[in-house]
Design a binder for these strands. Structure first.
Lengths: 70, 77, 70, 77
DNA sequence: ACAGGCTGACGTCAGCCGGC
DNA sequence: GCCGGCTGACGTCAGCCTGT
């Protein structure tokens, strides 16, 4: 009868799904890793900008206070 | 909408925000630099040698293979 | 002979390792998730501080320029 | 050493840095606020109503269950 | 409704590194 | 040395959301 034939089709369908999901999982892990690197790099950039802004604020404050005493 | 599921969209949002913030950062730094370069009144003193020293070491997230971009800040003197 | 007994011990050793590694993997995934949340929260904090510093720098610059014209 | 393997140490390093940076941030904000509160010369004008408005909406990383701490900045007026 | 793409969470294997 | 704790990477299952 046609039973085993249908079973073979379902088996191939399942293997296809597993293969697709396998590759998708690899790409997903890669993207997640890249996202973490993006976050760490963004933290580093914001850190440097914060330090530079604070230093600039200190300098400008000193200039402002010095000029205020004139 | 503000917190997408796909990692691609999250990365895109963060890179976009980082670009905007970096532009605003560089703009305000240039403005302050231009405002302070014009000597206050007519004093004409060169008192900008010390006090505006920017030489911090960079955080260095991974040191290798981190694809770090725009990590160091420019010198707006 | 003592063959099967040794085999049973090795099997229990293996199951013990698998169990330990199972729980370790759960805790590791939890810590990784917490680390990502930490990074995202840190980015948000640095973002707010950056904006506040830029606004303060703008205000102080305007005050400095205004007073410079006196 | 600067980039530990364990997630616990990474979290510890980030929280420590965040605490230090927040302290430095609040300190410089208070200093600038104190310097600008003292009226320049003897003008005595109250021109601080607009221009120092800090009311940005907070980024709101996850909106639920994000364990966010110190997300909002104080008003150093 | 139903199939398909992405991701969260699981268990397993392999590998690194610190402590015994 | 070797052994155990943590983590990187894999494949699988379950679930959400979008487009058809």
């Amino acid at each position: 009868a046609g039973g085993p034939i249908i079973a073979e089709d379902q088996a191939r369908k399942r293997e296809m799904r597993l293969l697709k999901n396998r590759e998708a999982a690899r790409e997903c892990r890669r993207k997640k890793k890249e996202y973490i690197k993006c976050l760490e790099n963004r933290v580093a950039v914001l850190e440097n900008q914060n330090k530079a802004l604070i230093e600039e604020l200190k300098s400008l404050k000193e200039l402002y206070c010095q000029q205020k005493t004139d | 909408m503000a917190n997408p599921r796909k990692f691609s969209e999250k990365i895109a949002l963060h890179t976009q925000k980082q670009a905007e913030e970096t532009a605003a950062f560089e703009q305000i730094m240039r403005e302050v630099s231009d405002a302070t370069s014009k000597v206050p009144k007519q004093h004409l003193l060169i008192n900008q040698s010390l006090g505006s020293y920017r030489g911090g070491s960079l955080p260095n997230v991974n040191h290798i293979g981190s694809n770090s971009v725009d990590l160091k800040v420019g010198n707006y003197g």
